[in-house]
Write a protein that binds this DNA or RNA. Structure first.
Lengths: 245, 245
DNA sequence: GCGCTATTAATGTCAGACAAATAGAAACAC
DNA sequence: GTGTTTCTATTTGTCTGACATTAATAGCGC
């Protein structure tokens, strides 16, 4: 837990790193209180601003939380799956938009992963999960539903499917793929897609899940994947046509 | 791009959020320069320390980078897959250790995902990927190899397998599952496992990838998964036995 | 044109102050 | 004794102003 004042790296980065390593090594455990800012100043021999900037870095990663007042301070945070999921989705989304991931790659990844958890989902789905899926399908069939709401419902449906696998780790990892690729997919295909067709596939998937029919679910997910890809190709063709004319 | 000074939330959090939203919305694009700290002070009507803490939050998420000197400043960062992968692995690791994920859950998730990308890997593997896999298998067979090195090689082997699928998005998502669960797995099973058995399975997997035999790869991954689970159960039994005596 | 220096603009760090929140102790009323 | 209020100490959040460090650029001598 020391820093090198002669190093080129900024002090606040070094300090953040030192503390992060203590957390990862287990020296600092969940809900442990870090020394107060003043104490950290003394320890690292830097000013309070520098310590604070280091703490903000850690807070941005949800590694610590801070509380004001007497017996306040910075505490090691228990990372929750929900927090981490939010972060993961944000990062994944940015990653894809900034690197201009082509639709095929994203779609391929997304359905490959979703199909991976289908067997578990089929095995373990509860009545709750099934109900959520049915409700979302019903919502998708409502006339006059905005494109945006339809997309949201789509995400919710697939999330219920993934959550059915009853594996936190899987859900967390999948969230990045499913929720981050969804906006990309919607942006490209929302104008061209047939809601009927999608609802039909969703219904088949829900049926498969209900009847513990892994093969059906897998087949329908594959079909959904193929349909989505087909759509994107049509949209691409339309665009190039319009460009020519 | 405004903040609410009457809100309960800390100012630096609000400012970070405002800027993050501009980045995510595309108003600020990759390599765009943010206003200087002084300009941001004027805009948000806060002090420089507050602005700086907000910027540090964004820097911690790799959303921006800063440069000193004239014509320096804060620039929107292009998220690279490597950076994001590192972050993702760190978070996943912490998530699992803090929430005391049981081995079965982690193992199940990890192999489910890995099997999901096997078909693509089998289809697209290059000579490079195959060579990496063979090299790692060879390394795993060296007598006197430390447990730590064996584990590293194990990760490298599986990473090569995943990368064979030639899908950045998939590789990124998988990294969290594979690399973050590996330490957990190693910790639990390294004492009990038979390197020979693992090398044999790895060899079979490499063969399957080489010969475009998706079924073989899938079967062998399933076997590896089952073997790992079996090991963990044995270790657990051993422990409870020792506890009793 | 080349190399040197001075300028300038930006981030990084420091020091000291006050504001605001909060828990716990102390004082007080009953 | 008990419940309530007030006070106090501690800690984070914010502000101000200063100086250090870094790096691009303009000017100047040659």
């Amino acid at each position: 837990m020391k820093i090198d004042p002669t190093s080129k790296a900024d002090l606040s980065i070094q300090i953040a790193k030192a503390i992060r390593e203590e957390i990862m090594a287990g020296t600092l455990r969940v809900d442990d209180r870090l020394p107060s800012e003043t104490e950290l100043c003394d320890h690292f021999e830097v000013s309070r601003s520098t310590v604070r900037e280091a703490l903000k870095r850690l807070a941005a990663q949800n590694l610590i939380r801070t509380q004001r007042g007497a017996s306040g301070g910075a505490f090691v945070n228990r990372l929750s799956y929900d927090q981490a999921r939010g972060h993961h989705v944000t990062t994944s989304t940015l990653l894809m938009s900034m690197n201009e991931v082509d639709f095929k790659t994203a779609c391929e990844a997304r359905y490959a992963l979703e199909r991976a958890c289908a067997p578990l989902a089929v095995e373990r789905r509860t009545a709750d999960h099934l109900a959520t899926m049915r409700v979302e399908i019903f919502r998708q069939g409502q006339p006059g539903l905005s494109d945006e709401s339809f997309c949201d419902s789509d995400v919710a449906f697939h999330r219920a499917l993934v959550d059915s696998a009853d594996n936190h780790v899987l859900s967390y990892q999948l969230a990045g793929a499913v929720e981050a690729t969804q906006p990309l997919m919607n942006m490209i295909t929302f104008s061209a897609r047939s809601r009927e067709k999608i609802i039909e596939l969703h219904t088949a998937i829900a049926d498969g899940v209900e009847n513990h029919d892994a093969e059906l679910v897998d087949a329908k997910l594959a079909e959904l994947s193929a349909y989505t890809l087909q759509l994107s190709e049509n949209v691409a063709k339309e665009r190039s046509k319009r460009k020519q004319s």
